[in-house]
């Protein structure tokens, strides 16, 4: 094993951890709000669950970024001995999804939380609230895309 591989693993780890934190915060605050609404209107559980799930995608994106790294250096079969420089490259390429995932997860959680209070009053508007939350997610999607394309472009071996 080389330092390069260690750096690549660090990049993958950061992506998973940062995005995971973003999602945990987002889903967590949405869940708290939703739990309050369920106390009064249990029939809205389905809609609320859908809303709560939205900030959860960042965590998945972080995982996807990490998996892309794993595939790139074939960590699961016979790891490619990448150089230290390549390792740094992969680490940097992980940053877009790591940072956008962390921050957008939290902010999407906030939008969803406000959305939940709207749904509590007007259940029929949940579709609009979902779209509003998706506006935030765009940037995590772009972050993931950038990370994937960057990693894809890094020459290994």
């Amino acid at each position: 094993m080389t330092l390069g591989i260690a750096l690549a693993i660090l990049g993958a780890a950061i992506a998973v951890i940062a995005c995971g934190i973003g999602s945990v915060k987002g889903v967590g605050m949405a869940g708290e709000a939703a739990a309050g609404v369920v106390a009064e209107q249990p029939e809205k559980f389905g809609k609320l669950l859908l809303l709560q799930a939205l900030p959860g995608t960042q965590g998945i994106y972080g995982f996807l970024g990490a998996f892309w790294v794993i595939m790139k250096i074939q960590l699961l079969s016979s790891p490619i001995d990448i150089s230290t420089v390549t390792g740094w490259q992969i680490l940097f390429a992980c940053l877009p999804i790591a940072i956008t995932g962390l921050i957008s997860g939290i902010h999407q959680g906030r939008v969803v939380t406000s959305g939940i209070s709207t749904v509590a009053k007007r259940g029929e508007e949940s579709g609009k609230m979902i779209i509003l939350a998706a506006m935030v997610e765009t940037y995590a999607v772009l972050g993931l895309l950038a990370s994937i394309l960057l990693i894809n472009g890094i020459p290994v071996e």
Binding site: I60, F63, L64, W68, V141, L142, L144, L145, I148
Partner: peptide, 22 residues
């Protein structure tokens, strides 16, 4: 450029599927 999400979401489905199989 916003339509690039089509690729990102497509990849995300594909990769999760691959991970599950693996």
């Amino acid at each position: 450029l916003s339509y690039s999400r089509l690729l990102a979401l497509g990849l995300s489905t594909a990769i999760i599927g691959i991970v599950v199989n693996m």
